[in-house]
């Protein structure tokens, strides 16, 4: 476990060292090239900003309205048939649309039911096994100006649904229901 943790800690310094040393060795004017490249970063962030505003406003309004409760209420019978605990269901819907909000929700769930309860473990697993789909889609496609995303969202949501389902199943088989 320590070795695995160390991989994350040392990765960035090692990657930077590798890039810089290879650059100097190959005769690249490292600082000039860095500054030129960094300009591209600036342009990209400015290009993303309008779509980011649009997305985050929509998500903010959706969350504040309480519409999530309605959706959870409608989906509850299906979820319980699939073995997904009702208490973790709001997270399943919030996770793809907002990373920070679902982080707060996981924290609430862990406090309310305990981190070592079945619900706590399912929520933790769900949180760790997917990304915030809408944020990723908006930022990545927004950065290059793609408007027609074709089937990307459907495939991403399919992956998400599987992760929700498997999270509950894996916790049930590995830790049991307590």
């Amino acid at each position: 476990m320590d070795m695995i943790k160390n991989a994350s800690v040392y990765a960035i310094p090692v990657i930077f060292l590798l890039i810089l040393c290879t650059g100097i060795y190959k005769g690249v004017k490292v600082f000039d090239v860095f500054v030129e490249g960094a300009k591209e970063g600036l342009a990209t962030v400015i290009r993303i900003l309008p779509s980011l505003v649009g997305l985050l406003v929509a998500i903010g309004v959706f969350r504040a309205s309480g519409a999530l409760d309605l959706i959870v209420f409608a989906a509850a019978p299906v979820a319980s048939a699939l073995g997904i605990p009702a208490e973790a269901l709001p997270l399943a819907f919030l996770r793809p649309i907002s990373g920070s909000a679902s982080l707060a929700l996981v924290s609430d769930i862990l406090k309310a039911y305990g981190p070592d309860s079945f619900i706590g473990r399912v929520a933790s697993t769900m949180m760790g096994s997917t990304e915030t789909i809408f944020y990723t889609l908006t930022v990545y496609f927004g950065a290059v100006g793609i408007k027609n995303i074709r089937y990307t969202l459907i495939a991403a949501l399919a992956a998400d649904a599987v992760s929700v389902l498997v999270s509950s199943m894996a916790c049930r088989y590995i830790f049991g229901i307590n």
Partner: peptide, 21 residues
Amino acid sequence: GLLGVMCLWTGMMAIAEKSGL
């Protein structure tokens, strides 16, 4: 918040690209 890291990485990647890495 993204701006600084974004510039850092696109800058580093520019070096890595120029050197053939």
